[in-house]
Design a protein around this nucleic acid. Structure first.
Ligand SMILES: [Mn+2]
Ligand SMILES: [Mn+2]
Ligand SMILES: [Mn+2]
Ligand SMILES: [Mn+2]
Lengths: 219, 219
DNA sequence: ATATATTTTTAGATGATTCTAAATTATATT
DNA sequence: AATATAATTTAGAATCATCTAAAAATATAT
């Protein structure tokens, strides 16, 4: 059994390690959870004792098989709750994160399976992130950043890399949303900005920063 | 701001004081939360400092106005979540308590107002307990224990005093549920047991223990 | 009104999580 | 290779919530 705090550490480590593959440094964790490296040092030793990560002094940590399973359970809950908030309670996609951050720690296997069924077993959350199934299997589809598309290319917006309220509200303003079709009308070599058409109608300017954080599936 | 633990103490104190009226003793709180009196002694001093209860050494505590407001907010959340679990996620009424005990601590005013609207502003929870509105106003209707009814009297089951899974499953077995019509067919002076008819059909025996924990509204 | 029993509080300790400051190890630069 | 810089760990302390054991206050029973 992991505490709420331990779950948050493990989830952050899992995300930083891109699916449990890479080694993660103490400072990277501290940055991600907004704690001090000293606190992280303590905690990763505890998580190593609980066998959810493998810790080597001064070398960072790696998520174990058990750790990956535990992390995916929390992520599954987080994303299912986000779907619930958006689809059932009419939250906007920029309002769900902090609440889901709390709800993901509710302990009840029955609750999460019933919620999943109630929502119709959704495959992605409101930000396009895939929802692991009860066995922890994730279904990922090939996606690339919008700003990597060639001139004239057409694609569909599938996910956002940045889920911050600020970025999401900016997308709302642009008229960009998951499922929207986009076409590259112009590309600026100079600053990597582009002009794109959304849904065959609106034309908007996209900075490099924005283009990198929109993930699309090419037609 | 109250911590999760403080909220649980305050809620227990509020319930023990019957709506914030009565003085509550240290031992009573310890029994209710399954802690030791020493721990309660510490905590009630903290809650007094936070002005949600008024503590007099050796004399127990009383809930303040602010305390009552805070307690009712937690109770509102608890009961709304119970309605959600039963009505939307098909939980049985004996399965909801432990989960609601966790969900009641989620902090998000938006969430609770949206949930309330989503559920259609329910007035009672699955155990017949009234749900305080956003202002903390509770709508109570006159109810009495089933075992106080006279022979031949007819009434409708409105609530249960005991929400333990064991009791609720017993009621399921008897065929008793909220909204069911009952009629007193026989009363035993000796042990306060009775024979009642449910929904004009089933006839069942009810012990004193059970009769005291079923609340009805007389026709 | 004493003595006894019960309730309540305090003292001291523990585990969890966090912090600052200091020490240690690893990495980068000359 | 020696030195400077950066990353990491440890030491020591704080806060929160809990406990056991002991002390103090209140209530009950002769
Ligand atoms: Mn969290
Ligand atoms: Mn998300
Ligand atoms: Mn609770
Ligand atoms: Mn209830």
């Amino acid at each position: 059994m992991l505490s709420l705090v331990e779950e948050n550490y493990l989830k952050a480590i899992y995300h930083l390690s891109e699916g449990g593959q890479a080694q993660v440094s103490t400072n990277a964790i501290a940055d991600a959870i907004h704690t001090k490296p000293a606190s992280v040092s303590d905690m990763i030793q505890k998580l190593d004792r609980k066998r959810v990560i493998q810790y080597t002094k001064y070398q960072g940590v790696k998520v174990t098989k058990e750790g990956k399973e535990a992390a995916l359970k929390v992520i599954r809950k987080h994303r299912l709750w986000e779907v619930f908030l958006v689809e059932q309670l009419n939250f906007n996609w920029d309002e769900v994160h902090d609440v889901a951050e709390q709800l993901e720690h509710i302990k009840s296997p029955l609750l999460i399976e019933r919620l999943d069924a109630f929502l119709g077993h959704p495959k992605v959350d409101p930000h396009g992130d895939p929802i692991p199934d009860a066995q922890g299997v994730i279904n990922t589809k090939p996606q690339k950043p919008l700003h990597q598309l060639d001139l004239g290319a057409e694609a569909i917006i599938r996910a956002v890399k940045d889920s911050s309220p600020a970025f999401l509200r900016h997308l709302d303003k642009l008229g960009a949303y998951l499922g929207a079709g986009v076409k590259i009308l112009e590309k600026e070599e100079f600053d990597n900005s582009m002009q794109i058409q959304i849904d065959q109608s609106t034309v908007v300017f996209i900075s490099n920063e924005v283009g990198q954080n929109i993930l699309v599936q090419e037609n």
